[in-house]
């Protein structure tokens, strides 16, 4: 390592120690001891800065934080699913002894032996790590794929196809909310009948034209081509809206992290 690297490391270690001391001295909570709390808040702040440092350029601090995240999150998901589903759902159906050990009430039901089926399939899935008999994991994979396909088939057909077609069949010539004729009250009020009707037309034509754009079995010429053109415009507005919302979301996350640094770590704001 270069000398400058050692200097940077030493400065970081010093800053960490100073921060640890001050955070421990000013901790008022009762969840952890002040020493642990000071260390943890400082660690959280330094890890935040390590990730932010990537905007300058890739560096060892960022790589360290990235690898730390991978390890921690993999174990996190494993532990959560073990306690919630294996201990919470499986063990109370297959073993009285283990149920008692884990403090779970045993569920004495006649068909409990069937719960060995997912255990066997689960073990077969783990055999994927073996190069010789890894192929048997396909049986478990087939169960997962079959379940997903069976669940998706009906749900998507109903909610994302039939319900959507049905919701697109909106009144295109509606009277106003208070029952008056539409033409007697043409205003651009956001809650007015004219705008309500305009919205319905946009939805009706927009959906049809959008679908026409995605239909590639016929050449996009003539009336079909013009509808496809309108479909593109609708999709462009959709993507523009999505972009606007994405910007909003990402800024919020940055606000969240900077608020942590300024408030919880540095104590600059109350």
């Amino acid at each position: 390592m270069k000398r400058s690297t050692y200097i940077v490391m030493a400065v970081m270690a010093l800053l960490f120690a100073v921060s640890w001391y001050f955070k421990a001295a000013t901790y008022h909570g009762n969840v952890m001891s002040p020493l642990v709390a000071g260390f943890m808040i400082t660690l959280a702040a330094f890890l935040t800065l390590a990730i932010i440092s990537f905007v300058y350029q890739d560096n060892p601090f960022y790589k360290f934080a990235e690898h730390l995240f991978v390890g921690i999150s993999a174990a996190f998901w494993m532990c959560q699913s073990f306690w919630s589903t294996i201990v919470g759902n499986l063990i109370p159906r297959i073993s009285t002894g283990l149920s008692k050990y884990f403090g779970q009430p045993y569920r004495d039901e006649p068909w409990n032996f069937v719960y060995w089926l997912p255990v066997i399939l689960g073990i077969l899935l783990l055999l994927r790590l073996s190069s010789k008999i890894g192929w048997v994991s396909r049986w478990a994979l087939a169960f997962i794929v079959g379940t997903t396909a069976g669940l998706s088939f009906i749900r998507y057909l109903r909610s994302d196809f039939m319900e959507q077609i049905s919701s697109t069949m909106v009144p295109l010539l509606a009277a106003g909310n208070s029952g008056e004729s539409l033409l007697s009250n043409i205003t651009l009020s956001a809650t007015g009948p004219f705008v309500a009707m305009l919205t319905n037309w946009v939805i009706f034509l927009g959906v049809i034209c959008g679908i026409v754009y995605f239909f590639f079995s016929k050449e996009h010429t003539g009336l079909f081509g013009r509808a496809s053109r309108v479909g593109i415009w609708i999709l462009m507005i959709t993507f523009g809206a999505a972009f606007g919302y994405t910007v909003m979301g990402r800024i919020t996350l940055l606000v969240g992290r900077l608020t942590f640094l300024y408030k919880d770590w540095l104590g600059l704001i109350s």
Binding site: R155, T238, A242, Y245, G249
Partner: peptide, 21 residues
């Protein structure tokens, strides 16, 4: 898809901005 429509339960969403549209 899996609860609101088949169970006929009212559902409201609190969504991250990226997925809200």
């Amino acid at each position: 898809l899996y609860v609101g429509d088949p169970g006929n339960v009212p559902i409201a969403a609190g969504a991250a901005a990226v997925t809200a549209p």
